[in-house]
């Protein structure tokens, strides 16, 4: 068996194990879905009534791409929490004494979290449809938008894997990633157009990978206000290319890093 097929085979077995957990503890999934629904309602009705987009347009439509991106990024926290939990309970130790591929546990973890995110995105889309969000483009573009969201979330999962293996305590992973995720997903074009932000924040927001993904998804869903012109920075002018670039870079850095960390990880 080649290394790759071995990694995928073992990864599939561990994915299945994690997916069984989603099934057995549905509370986790339900709570995971409540917050995006809450976000949709909160922003649509609380902020939505006050926010006026420059040049007009429907804020709820504009908002959805931002909430999608924020939520999938936030959901990747479970990658770190899941690994930290497994480590605490000695399950990672057991896996490490088995003759399995070095990346299997991480492949399994990130894959099952992708499944989780798929369910989250589906729920949010329904919530969005209820508050009046619509896809104004073709089916193909819409699917590409969803695929891009999930691919980005998958890449971020590997960052969270590094965090989870380094921090080793589920509670700390939760708190630490919350801070980072909130900074990344709010200092961006997710909820307001980035042009309005003050100097340094604007630069950060416009080069933030979350902004590139949000911009790409907004374009692919056709949710930008009429007459909208993207800010004159490369990642927002070419959001799909920029998003793919970020995904590749994140994976190239964090996959090897987390595999290396996994090999040294021990519960005590």
């Amino acid at each position: 068996m080649t290394t790759l097929t071995a990694a995928l085979g073992d990864g599939a077995v561990i994915t299945r194990r994690n997916v069984i957990k989603i099934k057995r503890v549905p509370d986790l999934l339900i709570i995971g879905m409540l917050s995006p629904i809450m976000f949709v309602l909160l922003f649509a009705y609380v902020f939505g009534s006050a926010v006026v987009l420059p040049g007009g347009g429907d804020y709820r439509e504009f908002l959805m791409a931002g909430i999608f991106t924020q939520t999938v990024v936030l959901s990747t926290t479970i990658t770190g929490v899941g690994l930290a939990e497994d480590m605490q309970k000695g399950i990672i130790d057991r896996f490490r004494t088995l003759p399995i591929s070095r990346s299997a546990v991480l492949v399994g973890r990130t894959t099952s979290d992708l499944v989780n995110n798929l369910l989250v995105v589906a729920t949010m889309s329904l919530a969005g449809l209820v508050v009046g969000w619509r896809v104004n483009t073709s089916v193909g573009e819409a699917l590409l938008g969803f695929a891009l969201l999930l691919a980005f979330a998958y890449a971020v999962s590997w960052i969270m894997a590094v965090v989870g293996l380094a921090v080793r305590s589920p509670e700390v992973v939760n708190n630490a990633s919350f801070v980072v995720v909130f900074a990344l997903t709010f200092v961006a074009n997710t909820f307001v157009p980035s042009e309005g932000l003050p100097g340094p924040l604007r630069v950060f927001a416009q080069w933030n990978p979350v902004s590139a993904v949000t911009e790409a998804v907004r374009q692919l869903f056709g949710n930008n206000p009429p007459g909208y012109v993207a800010p004159d920075v490369w990642p927002l002018q070419n959001p799909i290319a920029a998003s793919l670039g970020w995904i590749v870079v994140i994976l190239l850095v964090f996959v090897p890093l987390s595999v290396q960390q996994y090999q040294k990880a021990t519960s005590r």
């Binding site: 068996m1 085979g9 073992d10 077995v13 561990i14 194990r17 069984i20 957990k21 057995r24 503890v25 309970k89 000695g90 399950i91 130790d93 057991r94 896996f95 088995l98 003759p99 399995i100 299997a104």
Partner: peptide, 20 residues
């Protein structure tokens, strides 16, 4: 180091599958 959310059978099956 057993998985709390799996059944006893699933736990052992998991290990067996990982031993290929």
């Amino acid at each position: 180091a057993v998985d709390e959310y799996l059944t006893a059978f699933e736990n052992l099956e998991l290990v067996g599958r990982l031993y290929r």
